[in-house]
Amino acid sequence: MNQNSKLEIQNCSAMLKNLIYNLRVKNAIRFSIKTHEVYQKQKRKGKDIAYVTHPLTVGIILAMAGAREEVIIAGILHDTIEDSIKEKKVDEKMITTRFGKKVAQIVVSVSEDNKTLNWEERKSKARENIKKFKHNSLLVKSADVISNVTELIDDFIVCGDEAFSRFGGPKERVIANYLEVMKIILEKWPQNPLSKDLKNLSIEFKKIV
């Protein structure tokens, strides 16, 4: 193992250690687990896998990218407003009270506010919103996309086109949507710490069209 590889491992280890021992991050993890798992046993689309694995993965991706504390916390909480159940509804005020205004603003910015729209309308609106994102929101969205797309590629390898049957749109549109989202993020913020990952993922994702 060369010196650069050792340094990268040490840096990753330090980032993950900071994530594990940070009290605010631990509180965010508990909050996310309660929202997605304890209160509703939410699952990943079409799978018997706890949904909370996704926001926790987003938090890890952000930590390894060197994101600031409030961005990591927002990543862990990024779906709590959008997916919380009526009886235990999470809103901006609740997140502001518990985690601060900066975290709440990021979470609100990346949340879809109208799930009554059909899939095409929701995704079109979401793409337009991304064009208005500030860097913190773009970084959270980048980690969100990386988590979702890598999981989707893994599922495709195992079960083929069936992996896309869980979505509200056809395979071609699901792929096109993710590719367009990655393109928007890269064009809006070329220096994004996760830009290399997004570029590589775009290339990999195009192979399954």
Results as ranks from 00 to 15, higher is better:
residue 130 I to P: 00
residue 46 G to T: 03
residue 28 A to M: 04
residue 164 F to D: 03
residue 104 A to W: 02
residue 133 F to K: 02
residue 107 V to I: 07
residue 90 V to I: 14
residue 157 I to A: 12
residue 167 F to D: 02
residue 172 E to F: 11
residue 137 S to V: 01
residue 95 I to S: 02
residue 78 H to V: 01
residue 65 A to I: 10
residue 145 V to K: 14
residue 170 P to Y: 06
residue 73 I to N: 00
residue 17 K to A: 14
residue 30 R to H: 14
residue 160 G to R: 10
residue 10 Q to I: 12
residue 206 K to S: 15
residue 40 Q to R: 00
residue 69 E to P: 05
residue 99 F to T: 01
residue 127 R to W: 05
residue 34 K to N: 15
residue 45 K to Y: 14
residue 203 I to Q: 08
residue 136 N to T: 01
residue 129 N to L: 13
residue 35 T to D: 07
residue 184 I to C: 08
residue 199 K to N: 13
residue 21 Y to D: 12
residue 110 V to H: 00
residue 21 Y to I: 12
residue 165 S to V: 10
residue 84 S to L: 04
residue 183 K to T: 10
residue 116 T to Q: 11
residue 92 E to I: 06
residue 99 F to M: 00
residue 77 L to Y: 00
residue 4 N to V: 08
residue 196 K to F: 13
residue 103 V to D: 02
residue 131 K to M: 13
residue 96 T to G: 07
residue 70 E to W: 01
residue 6 K to R: 08
residue 118 N to A: 02
residue 160 G to I: 08
residue 181 V to L: 09
residue 167 F to Q: 02
residue 80 T to G: 03
residue 153 I to G: 05
residue 49 I to H: 05
residue 125 K to C: 06
residue 105 Q to N: 13
residue 90 V to S: 04
residue 185 I to P: 12
residue 106 I to A: 03
residue 64 M to Q: 14
residue 63 A to D: 00
residue 15 M to D: 06
residue 68 R to N: 12
residue 166 R to I: 12
residue 154 D to S: 15
residue 56 L to W: 03
residue 196 K to V: 12
residue 126 A to P: 01
residue 45 K to G: 06
residue 175 I to N: 07
residue 204 E to M: 10
residue 174 V to T: 13
residue 17 K to G: 04
residue 47 K to R: 15
residue 43 K to V: 11
residue 35 T to E: 05
residue 102 K to D: 14
residue 192 N to C: 10
residue 134 K to V: 07
residue 190 P to L: 11
residue 142 S to P: 13
residue 81 I to F: 01
residue 208 I to S: 03
residue 9 I to T: 11
residue 21 Y to G: 06
residue 167 F to M: 06
residue 152 L to W: 05
residue 160 G to T: 04
residue 136 N to R: 01
residue 31 F to V: 05
residue 69 E to H: 01
residue 195 S to E: 07
residue 53 T to G: 11
residue 151 E to C: 12
residue 201 L to R: 06
residue 1 M to G: 15
residue 126 A to G: 03
residue 185 I to Q: 04
residue 33 I to M: 12
residue 153 I to M: 12
residue 131 K to P: 03
residue 4 N to Q: 11
residue 108 V to W: 02
residue 68 R to Y: 00
residue 126 A to N: 11
residue 123 K to R: 15
residue 5 S to C: 07
residue 173 R to A: 14
residue 95 I to R: 01
residue 91 D to C: 07
residue 1 M to N: 12
residue 48 D to I: 07
residue 148 N to S: 15
residue 94 M to W: 14
residue 144 D to F: 11
residue 125 K to W: 02
residue 205 F to V: 06
residue 29 I to A: 12
residue 181 V to R: 08
residue 10 Q to K: 14
residue 129 N to P: 03
residue 167 F to C: 04
residue 207 K to N: 13
residue 92 E to W: 02
residue 161 D to M: 06
residue 54 H to G: 05
residue 78 H to T: 03
residue 104 A to Y: 01
residue 81 I to V: 04
residue 94 M to A: 13
residue 165 S to F: 09
residue 190 P to S: 10
residue 68 R to T: 08
residue 141 K to W: 10
residue 30 R to G: 09
residue 153 I to C: 10
residue 108 V to Q: 04
residue 89 K to I: 14
residue 180 E to M: 09
residue 191 Q to E: 15
residue 21 Y to W: 08
residue 200 N to M: 14
residue 76 I to A: 04
